[in-house]
Amino acid sequence: MEKFNNMAFQLITSEDIRQLTAERAGETKIGETIQSLSDFSVEAMNASSARFVTLGIKEDIGPRANLGRAGAHSAWEAFLPKFLNMQSNRFFNGSDCLIAGSIDLNGFANSNELGNLRAATSKIDQILTEILNTIHQAKKIPIVIGGGHNNSYSNIKAAAINHPKGKINCINIDPHADFRPLEGRHSGNGFSYAFEEGYLNKYAIVGLHEGYNSENMLNALDEKKVSFTTFEDIFIRENMAFISAVEKELRVVNDGQYGIEVDLDAVENIASSAQTPSGVSVTNARQFVHHSGSSSNACYLHLCEAAPSLSAHPDQVGKLLAYLVADFVKSRKNY
């Protein structure tokens, strides 16, 4: 744990969990059964029977470096009490999860100048890759909450360097492909950097918005053989049902280990870095996580870009994140 102290890593203790959990007679909450760590190390995680490690990321440098809105730093604080106060029962036993804590990375940017933000995003890449690598080394499945979609890079890289082939696949539900040029790191090019550096093999996207991806971006996707189904094809022209689109893109990535990326920008009217009035429903997002998680090849879940601090009802954003985490854990029951 000591090596992360200067990076503002906050370990969650059993006492922290108890204070956030509203105990009630005759009920058992996730906060009463979830596991915590004595220190952040492979050895401490190996001592736990939990299969999943939940980690919070407090940063919005990546979105700001992509000319987006601040706010993604606030997702973890909104998520945590909602998650801990879900019921631990026959459907979801909290002891399956270990809650590691969170890391506050916004201090890496000392100005809003674009070059400074992009340099800070690169520093975040290095730190998160190291942290996530520790989780993978312990043979646990990371569930990463908060921050910008720039952190897809670290999620992919950490999983890839722990895979025999040195690369993994990825499925993403997102209005944007986040495959922008290699112009300095930000939330819009995590996948293109991961592809260029050899960590990302096959990439598939569900719900791409036709009006918010440039022709240059689409050409880059074609060149790299990225598979995608657009939002308009699913919901406007109704050429394909939503679940059929998810299954189509899963067939692309499910020949090997793959990460699951959920950009909350995709969900209609949810406060996020690039909030949309036209997107998938909350139920669609939950279906995506369930179907994507229902394979032994799914190696992490990343929920990003949610910005509850921009919402009049931040607790509702936190509750959605809690639902998505529970859906992922439950989808893995047979694996």
Rank of each mutant, 00 (worst) to 15 (best):
A306D: 11
S272G: 12
K330G: 03
S48Y: 05
H73T: 10
L84C: 01
E247V: 12
K167P: 01
V282Q: 12
R51Y: 04
E2L: 13
S49C: 09
L117V: 03
A50M: 03
K58M: 12
S102Y: 12
N201W: 10
A78S: 15
V53I: 10
E113H: 14
D174C: 00
A245T: 07
I171V: 14
A70E: 00
R51V: 05
F288V: 03
N6A: 15
F108N: 02
G94R: 08
G293M: 06
S95M: 09
K82P: 02
C299Q: 12
S273Q: 09
A47P: 04
A119I: 01
D178T: 05
F235A: 06
K139S: 15
Y300D: 15
N133V: 00
R18V: 03
I143W: 01
A138W: 08
N93W: 13
S48P: 00
Q10C: 10
A306R: 07
H176A: 00
A266N: 06
S296N: 15
N66H: 02
Y153L: 05
N112H: 12
A158G: 07
E77P: 04
K139H: 12
S281K: 07
V282W: 07
H163C: 10
G190N: 01
F328C: 01
S214K: 09
A120H: 08
R286S: 14
C299D: 12
A78H: 00
L128Y: 00
D104Y: 10
T28C: 01
K140N: 01
I124V: 11
G147V: 08
A158M: 07
V317N: 12
Q87T: 07
S311C: 00
Q275N: 08
E196P: 05
P142A: 06
E43C: 03
V252W: 11
T283H: 15
T134S: 05
N116G: 06
D178R: 03
T283L: 09
N112W: 09
T134R: 05
F328E: 06
Y212S: 14
A159G: 09
T21G: 00
G107H: 11
G26F: 04
I161A: 02
S38D: 14
N85P: 03
S192C: 05
G107I: 09
Q126Y: 14
N6Y: 13
R118Q: 11
K157P: 03
Y300P: 09
F228S: 02
I131R: 06
R332V: 10
E23G: 01
M240E: 15
V317F: 07
Y153H: 01
A285N: 09
A307I: 08
K333N: 13
N5Q: 14
A204Q: 04
V262P: 07
H291A: 11
F40T: 08
A159V: 11
V289L: 08
L128W: 05
K225G: 08
